[in-house]
Design a protein around this nucleic acid. Structure first.
Lengths: 213, 213
DNA sequence: CTAGAATATGAGGAATTCCTCGCTTTTTGT
DNA sequence: ACAAAAAGCGAGGAATTCCTCATATTCTAG
């Protein structure tokens, strides 16, 4: 009886050096092909060709097309999680970690915007992928929350504060990093830092200020 | 000689009442089908069936599948542009138009998040569609710019200020309106208003405040 | 009422794409 | 050196999907 095949699980674990390299070549090729053609038109045939492999070899390492993008996405999420965890590891003032975090995200997403677009917008919404996204975000939110609480310059706000900080940074980075006329990275970073900083360290309530209306 | 067929142009303009209704039924059906199945799996056959029509009839009104989503998207963009233009028509203080605008966007996108996701993320990136997006956004940015300049409570900021206001509102609305655990609309509105207001009406510079670090 | 125009029908052609499977080549352990 | 295991190959089956076209039905103008 053949072993049960679960989807999104590699159908074979490489034993030889050569096999690992092949697997890597497939993933790199897939990244390029998805970036160039989008998910739907990024066919497995094209990926195999780009990797300089036959289609049959490709299917020795990935049970189906979705699985390739799932692995690609999972790797990216893991890399992001590592980065965020590192930058937010220990208590520092907002003015230290916020620009650093923003700059790193701008840099990474500016590198290959089309691929990131495919991963975020067209990746198969597998429970596994969704859970990965959620978990990574939760960790980021938790880390931000710790830093905010420890920072006397930060005003305590709604319970959603940390979540909005993370969402704002990520959303704006994605937004201005697309294939449209790209913005100057330094400028983008500055403006995002400004928005988040003012959100977290507001002046006196608006109602208590003089108004000319 | 047959007339040249340009893609994304209806292949026939309805002459009878019945025909207009049919066209409408197709668009409504397509909206439902795309929302349920996404773009790739939202097949023309399914749309025709959902509309209670034969596939042949569908192709009398739309030259191909893309054209249906293009029309759907164009209608949505036009609706948005109307709304924004109306809310931002005349000079009012930030505290008046910002909550109103935010609430309207939250309401509209909360209504059918899956469809909006398909329109924004999977709509064929036709030059026409892209131009539509850009134009609508430019108008919004221009309107916001006018209001900001006229508002004494708003600090003059970077040249990108208005663009970031629009991007922030739209991005956060989309972000928290997805199919993930949806947030309470009122709360979402409040927080977006807070972020944008503090961005536009900051307190004294951070450097001039006492810090405990 | 009737002829022609407008609209509706749906079987199936053409194209694409995913993936399998029997076979060959390369590597490894002994 | 050699047998067995691992890796690689690629023609083509199976399924899906877009869309056409020859025909049928419904509407409208005179």
């Amino acid at each position: 009886m053949p072993p049960a095949r679960s989807p999104y699980r590699p159908r074979k674990t490489p034993r030889q050096q050569r096999a690992w390299e092949t697997r890597g070549r497939i993933l790199e090729a897939a990244a390029r092909v998805f970036a160039r053609h989008g998910y739907a038109s990024g066919t497995t045939d094209r990926i195999a060709e780009e990797a300089g492999l036959s289609i049959g070899s490709l299917y020795q390492y990935f049970p189906n097309k979705d699985a390739i993008l799932v692995v690609l996405t999972r790797n990216h999420v893991a890399e992001m999680a590592r980065l965020v965890a590192e930058v937010l590891a220990e208590p520092r003032p907002l003015t230290a970690w916020l620009p650093e975090l923003t700059r790193a995200l701008v840099r990474i997403h500016g590198a290959d915007p089309r691929l990131h677009q495919v991963m975020y917008e067209q990746a198969p919404r597998t429970p596994e992928v969704l859970a990965g996204f959620r978990e990574a975000e939760s960790e980021a939110v938790a880390a931000v929350e710790r830093l905010l609480r420890a920072d006397p310059a930060v005003a305590t706000g709604s319970a959603w504060q940390a979540r909005f900080v993370v969402a704002t940074i990520e959303s704006l980075v994605h937004r201005f990093t697309g294939d449209l006329p790209a913005m100057d990275p330094a400028e983008l970073e500055r403006e995002i830092v400004t928005i988040v900083t003012r959100y977290l360290c507001p002046g006196p309530d608006l109602e208590k200020r003089p108004s000319a209306w």
